[in-house]
Design a binder for these strands. Structure first.
Lengths: 238, 238
DNA sequence: CGCTTCATTGAATAACATCAACATATGTGG
DNA sequence: CCACATATGTTGATGTTATTCAATGAAGCG
């Protein structure tokens, strides 16, 4: 066995997980151990990740891009039940996955590791388990927030809420300020519709309404500019 | 200090938490410690539980009854984002609560304990933390299932899904069988509407439609009989 | 350039909400 | 026990919102 390096692995140097994600709970030595079995994986937009067979074997951190978690009814109706951004964790220690699909919404880079190795590490490092626990609590909060959006908001408010969600994810700090912000939508209209429980036509109509109301401007169908976040927030309900 | 009894505390004897809930992770001694600081609390239907001030101080297990977790928009629109049945755990270790209200949907009995004591016990008992982790994963699954219902199902399917949810909770085993089942709805029409993202009128109409279609029968507005769960399940979408 | 995918727009329709009236149940004090 | 009040639930008529169906437009790619 070769020696385990006593410094931050190269793989991890630029990784957000070390700061804001799961790996923040690890000592340098543990990080090194994990890095040795970890495996960077790139996936094109639309690729199935952690498909059912695979799910049992591998966990992953999102390094870049957006992953959508979807559920589908037998007749094909689909609902996105979660969006995972870097440095979110993907997978379900100690638990069978409920029927849930993970798909790359954009091109995605993942840092994957075998489930067995991670679960062993969890046993040794309570802080790691706590970190994962925290992430699940966070996911639960987001899911419940979104339930309010799905159940009680109008189409117009839903679309505004979605844009706010993305904008805040791009720049978590610009929240309070009335700053202008520009970003590319990580989702197609179809995905947005599946996230909001709407049809693509309704999403499109609400977006053009926001545009004619000067709340946003749209370039190339994907690139959104919000000149004033406060005004967008007004449209989001809450 | 008096000696800690080496047997299951009286408070815990009939408690489901010991079998299916959080307390299953505890040794008899730990159970005794927890039981000493635990405190049985009864609340009438409609009572606010864990109101914001209180939330920081106390965790609880649901011993009987149903607790609804709600979120409210500024203009009063409300959404139930979770229902907690016995022996579910109520509270959020290591986390500020997002704005969320807990209210007794029926008369409720809780087993409460100070947060500090439980968190200390969590540090000592990894299995306890894991148990809580599992419950949160479970809550997350339920939330995501419900997101599909809220976003993609029709009013008719929503109401059927709700009845199924309650029926399965009353009797988790009768699922596969085509057995008949009778139960009291733990929620008013208004609560059901808030849970399903509908109005009370729509809920009422869909219930009468299910009744005229002989899928269910209703006595006293609250008592539901489902002669054939399979047939109800057909109406639930999925 | 034609093909395909993705997005927008319009008109007709269906689903659910709203408004309003009435019904049933529960509880209270006389 | 009744008269009354309140809370809860049902039903009908009408209105609004979002969906559906269909056509068109724009962007990316061989």
């Amino acid at each position: 066995m070769s020696a385990i390096p006593d410094e931050v692995p190269k793989l991890c140097e630029a990784c957000e997980s070390r700061h804001k994600g799961m790996c923040g709970a690890l000592q340098v030595e543990q990080l090194a151990i994990l890095a040795r079995i970890a495996h960077k994986r790139e996936a094109k937009s639309g690729a199935e990740l952690l498909a059912e067979a695979e799910q049992a074997d591998v966990y992953a951190n999102v390094l870049s891009g957006v992953v959508k978690l979807t559920k589908t009814l037998s007749d094909g109706r689909q609902q996105i039940v979660g969006l995972q951004f870097a440095p979110d964790f993907l997978g379900r220690p100690f638990r069978k996955e409920s029927h849930l699909n993970a798909e790359a919404a954009t091109d995605v880079v993942l840092c994957t590791f075998p489930t067995a190795a991670l679960e062993r590490m969890i046993q040794e490092t309570p802080e790691l388990e706590r970190q994962l626990y925290r992430q699940v609590l966070n996911d639960l909060d987001e899911a419940r927030d979104w339930m309010v959006t799905l159940g009680r908001k109008t189409a117009s408010e839903k679309v505004a809420s979605f844009l706010l969600l993305i904008a805040r994810n791009i720049d978590p700090d610009s929240d309070a300020e009335c700053a202008s912000i520009t970003f590319d939508l990580p989702l197609t209209r179809a995905d947005i519709a599946d996230f909001l429980g709407l049809t693509i036509e309704t999403v499109s109509r609400q977006l053009t309404r926001l545009r004619t109301d000067k709340i946003i401007s749209i370039k190339n169908n994907r690139c959104i500019t919000v000149p004033n976040l406060e005004r967008l927030a007004t449209r989001a309900g809450n």
